[in-house]
């Protein structure tokens, strides 16, 4: 077993000069050639985690981490350009400069990182455009972002990320703004690219369908913490945190959902906590059907189920087993 490419231990982020705690200790690893999905809802801290890795947080944010290394090198204090990673965002239109051609922006992305001649750069740009399956790349070079469709723009963003040959690709809800047929194309493309280049992908999403499609490993976030982590198959087959189980129940499978028409969906009561609220115990306790008195006051213990799969909830499993025996 080689060391993981990306190692994060006890990552904490506080906004507003330390007053608003948005990440409250996040741990995960990501190995070369693997895809880790960070799953969570608004305010869970999944995008803040990505921004912390990329050094994209605003100046008033305070970042603390016991470990935050990429390929063994600590990220803290490293220049943004020196970080061996690239990121793609939800809305490619806002990430592309509307007055510059695609070709210019791709070449610039490369030349900011590496000193290469214009000829070499041009060849690399054409290569990477072919790699992301942009049809007719030579003519597309001269196109401006608004002349491309949403799916094509997202391909350009991926090309822009890949042209620097990063070891880690961070994708923050890259398909949320896209139509479902285009989403399928982009997800398929990302998997192909990973097979070709061996890049690690940190994929941020709120959609469990997308997770099932693309993830090797999953980390479920809630209120600034990872509440469950494990290989994708185990997480879906055997969720160990009541929040994960709740998300699963709320995610409808179009192949089977109509059979249960008329039945009520399982509701998670309440709403997600607001970022920065002081949370002494388990953040999910107020919405949890399995909570005991201690949940609101003491931070939940981490329970490992298998070597790679664990959750921050000691009660859910115990109660499920008890119910199973009673039944």
């Amino acid at each position: 077993m080689t060391d993981p490419l990306l190692e994060v231990r006890d990552l904490r982020v506080a906004m507003n000069s330390g007053r608003t705690q948005v990440l409250r200790g996040v741990d995960f690893d990501l190995a070369e050639g693997r895809t880790l999905c960070l799953v969570g809802e608004s305010g869970s801290g999944k995008s803040v985690t990505a921004a912390a890795l990329m050094d994209l947080l605003p100046p008033h944010a305070r970042i603390d981490a016991a470990t935050m290394t990429l390929g063994g090198r600590p990220l803290a204090g490293m220049r943004r350009a020196a970080r061996d990673m690239a990121m793609i965002f939800q809305d490619p239109m806002t990430s592309l400069n509307p007055v510059l051609t695609i070709g210019y922006q791709l070449r610039e992305a490369l030349q900011l990182k590496e000193r290469v001649s214009n000829d070499v750069a041009h060849a690399r740009v054409l290569d990477v455009m072919r790699q992301v399956r942009i049809p007719d790349p030579a003519t597309r070079l001269a196109a401006y972002p608004h002349q491309l469709s949403g799916g094509m723009r997202q391909r350009v963003m991926i090309a822009m990320a890949l042209i620097r040959r990063p070891r880690l690709l961070i994708a923050d809800e890259p398909t949320t703004a896209l139509d479902v047929t285009v989403q399928a194309q982009i997800l398929w493309l990302l998997q192909e690219l990973q097979r070709e280049t061996g890049t690690a992908i940190l994929f941020i999403t709120h959609d469990l369908g997308v997770v099932a499609e693309i993830a090797h490993d999953v980390a479920v976030m809630y209120a600034g913490r990872i509440v469950e982590r494990g290989p994708v198959g185990e997480i879906f087959r055997d969720p160990a945190h009541p929040y994960t189980a709740g998300l699963m129940a709320a995610t409808l499978d179009h192949r089977t959902a109509n059979d249960a028409r008329g039945e009520r969906l399982v509701e998670l009561p309440g709403t997600v906590p607001v970022a920065g609220e002081a949370i002494p115990g388990c953040a999910f306790a107020p919405r949890c059907a399995y909570a005991v008195a201690a949940c609101a006051t003491t931070p939940p213990e981490w329970r490992s189920l298998t070597r790679a799969h664990g959750a921050a909830c000691p009660h859910f499993r115990a109660q499920q087993m008890a119910e199973g025996i009673a039944r």
Partner: peptide
């Protein structure tokens, strides 16, 4: 094209090409 929330049943068909 709709992702299925079940990692054991990943899509095998190639997705629809092109844009709307």
């Amino acid at each position: 094209a709709v992702p299925v929330p079940d990692p054991e049943q990943r899509r095998t068909r190639t997705p629809l090409t092109g844009d709307p």
